[in-house]
């Protein structure tokens, strides 16, 4: 091996070391940056969940939205938006909307709740938990708890 070859081998190895270390650094920094970047623009303490645009709701129209794996029913009443946990307090069925009665209805045992979430008919023992709702810039935001 002559001197020139030895030098070229040396610089080649140095390049490899440098390149490898750089790759290593990038492989470490990239996940860290993506981790620090807000995921879904909300942290572990979720404050509100959007239920869509306010003008998409007609009067007495309702929508079920998921908050942390739990269904929440959003109702547009003439007085404004209301939101309740959509889990019946009787046996935990997902409740729906009875358009004719203007009441929240449980399909399982015909439990009915008024638009204040209070049970008015059937077996439900307690009222539905209410979620705060606010309309911000035309968007219906439901509080997570």
């Amino acid at each position: 091996m002559n001197e020139e070859q030895r030098i070229s081998r040396r610089t080649f190895l140095d390049w490899l070391v440098a390149g490898g270390l750089l790759t290593w650094a990038v492989a470490f920094v990239a996940p860290v940056i993506s981790y620090v970047w807000p995921a879904q623009k909300r942290g572990p303490s979720v404050q509100t969940v959007s239920a869509g645009k306010a003008d998409e709701f007609a009067e007495w129209q309702t929508k079920i939205v998921a908050i942390g794996g739990h269904p929440v029913i959003v109702i547009r009443t003439p007085q404004g938006f209301r939101a309740f946990a959509a889990i019946c307090t009787h046996l935990g069925c997902i409740v729906g909307w009875d358009a004719a009665r203007h009441q929240i209805a449980c399909p399982c045992h015909a439990g009915f709740f008024d638009i204040n979430g209070r049970p008015v008919a059937g077996p439900p023992p307690r009222q539905l938990a209410e979620h705060g709702v606010a309309v911000v810039n035309g968007e219906v935001l439901v509080k997570s708890a």
Binding site: A66, G69, H70, P71, I87, G92, C93, I94, P107, C108
Partner: peptide, 11 residues
């Protein structure tokens, strides 16, 4: 999402 589906199945 699956927990929500389960609620529906239970219903």
């Amino acid at each position: 999402d699956e927990e929500l589906l389960l609620q529906e199945a239970k219903t």
